[in-house]
Design a protein around this nucleic acid. Structure first.
Length: 492
RNA sequence: GUGGAUUUAGCUCAGCUGGCUAGAGCACGAGGUUGUGGUCCUCGGGGUCGCGGGUUCGAGUCCCGUAAUCCACCCCA
């Protein structure tokens, strides 16, 4: 063969920045993760959907604003349309729900496993192309809040919400169930929750003027990540008064605790300072406590195997979350977020649909896989194994080739319209050697449960040897009886 | 987009302050005992030392640039 000069530059020999090649091992790991996601979703009664990999650029501006564009891979098609590779699935979901909302049975319980794209600077756990499991529970309202209209612009929507909420619980349950199925438990992850309205009410009541709420949320999001000096800098930047700074410092010392304990601490501090609760719209410490505790009890006493902690630092940037939010983080790592989501009651409406309440969450494959590898929780053997490995020690290769194809074929009974015998996963060696020892070694490495040995002495009597690779036992079988013998051996 | 660290074979790495044809283990491939398993032995394919310049008689080693990776920012849907 003539040699050809390479036509590609060195830089073209690597996958583009922030993307991955999936060789068989990596592909098997990805499939394993996706299979768990899919299996658990279906078990919990969710149906799978998907949409286009790219959408109109404007679709992503609806909820995230213009600044999102710099973080998207966007392009213009030949008709001059602005398009973008999907950075997330929620806008597509909202579009799909809005388009058929009238005809869909409620609640709508959908999940998806889309490939998503973000033009970010890649880091550990953050790539430019990744898979993201999305689970959404749409149409199940908080009690007596279903048809609510959003409150006037400027003030967050206030509704007579009730913590007795199934959608929140189901989303959390399916998420935790998947993590459990991956072999993770409370030593590996921590569930934290917060509530937009609840937190707003507390902040306003205790120490934050309403016009400084946005700044307060921003601070809460970051307090945990900074040391003392970093926090002081933040307070200065945000123009915090001494009293605000004092409260934030107090709040920053968060650990695992219940909502009521957290609230109690704040109220005690207020009491010591002789400060008064700033009452607005009839919100009192007691009413807040009652709501928070009710939600907390609902989440923690509904059979979830893991405790849920109140965590006011979970803000989740998105403007579209309207109530409960949650985040599951890695306990041992640097609090990497494994999954996160919450309630977004106005989003479907933003995309032109009816007012439909919804709860959903996302979980990416990148952080999850790193976590599973760290904890050695990926199954040892991920590559698919054949059922049978044919070891050919005959001079001729034709009989083995014939046997391989025969065993691989399934058999369909036309008259009874049913499968009589399923095809088997069969491999044989592509090497030239007839050394049975080496071939058996290859058979064992393939992960096959059985080996069929074709060798002259037996072959001359129409016999083959059927070997169980696990316990190394073997027996002679007539060629004609082989399929039945294999199926019998596999069944045990 | 900004700053820091790193880059030698497919993987993990060695290569002292510049000096023979750049190495090991694992992995991969071929073979050895005329028919039974992760062993052993032999042999082999593989590296423009990330890439490009510079200094030097001489650069894997020193200097500059650049790319990629990781980390910290920004951002986090």
């Amino acid at each position: 063969m003539a040699t050809v000069k390479a036509q590609v530059d060195e830089s073209l020999r690597r996958p583009p920045k922030g993307t991955r090649d999936f060789y068989p091992e990596e592909m098997a790991a990805r499939r394993y993760i996706e299979d768990v996601w899919r299996r658990v979703s279906i078990r919990h009664g969710f149906q799978e959907i998907d949409g286009p990999t790219f959408e109109a650029l404007d679709l992503y501006k609806v909820k995230s604003g213009d600044e999102i564009v710099s973080q998207l891979f966007s392009f213009i098609d030949r008709g001059g349309r602005d398009l973008a590779l999907r950075p997330e699935f929620t806008p597509t979901l909202a579009r799909m729900v809005a388009a058929r909302a009238a005809g869909l049975p409620r609640p709508i319980k959908w999940f998806s496993i889309p490939r998503c794209y973000r033009a970010e600077q890649p880091q550990k756990g953050r790539l430019r192309e990744f898979m993201q499991w999305n689970v959404d529970f749409i149409g199940e309202a908080s009690e007596r809040s279903g048809g609510d209209k959003p409150a006037g612009a400027g003030t967050p929507a206030r509704r007579d919400w009730s913590p007795a909420e199934r959608a929140e619980l189901e989303c959390l349950a399916v998420c935790v169930d998947a993590l459990r199925e991956f072999g993770l438990d409370e030593k590996d992850f921590r569930i934290g929750w917060n509530h937009r309205q609840l937190l707003t009410d507390v902040l306003v009541g205790v120490f934050v003027p309403r016009e400084r709420l946005a700044s307060a949320f921003y601070l809460l999001d970051r307090l945990r990540k900074y040391n003392q000096a970093g926090r002081e800098e933040l307070y200065r930047q945000q123009g915090c008064a001494a009293r605000e700074r004092d409260y934030f410092e107090f709040i920053a010392q968060v650990g695992d605790h219940s909502f009521s304990a957290w609230l109690e601490q704040l109220l005690n501090k207020m009491g010591r300072e002789g400060a008064a609760w700033r009452s607005e719209a009839g919100v009192t410490p007691e009413s807040i406590r009652e709501r928070g505790v009710k939600l907390e009890q609902h989440l923690s006493q509904s059979g979830l195997p893991d405790p849920c902690w109140f965590d006011c630092s979970i803000v989740r940037g998105l403007a579209y979350y309207t109530g409960w939010v949650f985040e599951i983080t890695d306990r041992q790592g640097e609090s990497r977020a494994i999954a996160g989501g919450g309630r977004y009651d106005q989003l479907i409406e933003m995309f032109g649909g009816p007012s439909l309440p919804a709860v959903g969450f996302g979980m990416g494959d990148v952080v999850l896989e790193i976590l599973l590898r760290d904890r050695a929780r990926l199954p040892r053997r991920l590559l698919p194994s054949p059922d049978v490995f044919i070891v050919n020690a005959l001079e001729d290769s034709a009989p083995a080739d014939r046997l391989v194809l025969e065993l691989r074929r399934s058999q369909w009974d036309e008259a009874r319209a049913q499968m009589v015998r399923p095809g088997l996963g069969v491999q044989q060696s592509y090497r030239g050697t007839r050394n049975i020892g080496k071939l058996l070694q290859e058979a064992a490495a393939s992960g096959a449960k059985l080996a069929v040995i074709l060798a002259p002495n037996e072959w001359s009597r129409n016999l083959v040897r059927l070997k169980n690779l696990a316990d190394r036992s073997e027996k002679e079988v007539f060629l004609a009886d082989l399929p039945a013998a294999i199926h019998a051996a596999l069944a045990t």
